[in-house]
């Protein structure tokens, strides 16, 4: 589940999920929603492999989303699913799955580390991210 909120120059994204891997997958879908894909095909016809490690789960999430963002821009793909081959809080191997698109309505420049912190509480896993648009 995610919520898109405003920030003076950018977009603030809040994501919550029951598990950490769901948080990562929902974050990819939320990023795609912010990008406003245009002219999407109806079938999953694009896949992109990602292998990453990071100092902590927050850095892993931001780096993972930036991998998705870069691939989206270069290959014009709207990612809507993630297949994790392996996943621990500081390391993952995954395949991003999505649809080819004509373009995007919003130019997301990057997913920033600014104020980002993956937390676990009563409501499950949560993170707030600032996207530079």
């Amino acid at each position: 589940m995610w919520n898109i909120d405003h920030h003076t120059a950018d977009v603030r994204l809040t994501i919550t999920a029951g598990t950490l891997s769901e948080l990562f997958a929902d974050a990819v879908r939320a990023l795609t929603a912010v990008m406003e894909p245009e002219g999407s095909t109806s079938r999953n016809d694009a896949a992109f492999a990602v292998r990453l490690d990071a100092a902590d789960s927050t850095a892993l999430l931001v780096d993972f989303l930036n991998e998705a963002l870069t691939a989206s821009h270069i290959h014009r793909v709207a990612f809507t699913g993630v297949d994790f081959q392996s996943f621990v809080p500081t390391k993952l191997a995954a395949t991003l799955i999505g649809q080819k698109v004509r373009g995007f309505g919003e130019d997301v420049k990057s997913v920033t580390y600014h104020g980002a912190r993956v937390t676990f509480g009563e409501g499950g896993w949560a993170v707030t991210l600032v996207l530079d648009i």
């Binding site: 100092a55 870069t70 990057s110 600014h114 530079d132």
Partner: peptide
């Protein structure tokens, strides 16, 4: 945009090597 993304990530990883701690990873 990509140059900045690439190097912010690289420097965030390199900071412990140089003993740099900051209030915001960005």
């Amino acid at each position: 945009h990509q140059v900045a993304t690439d190097y912010i990530k690289a420097m965030a990883r390199a900071m412990p090597k140089y003993g740099i701690e900051l209030p915001d990873r960005e």
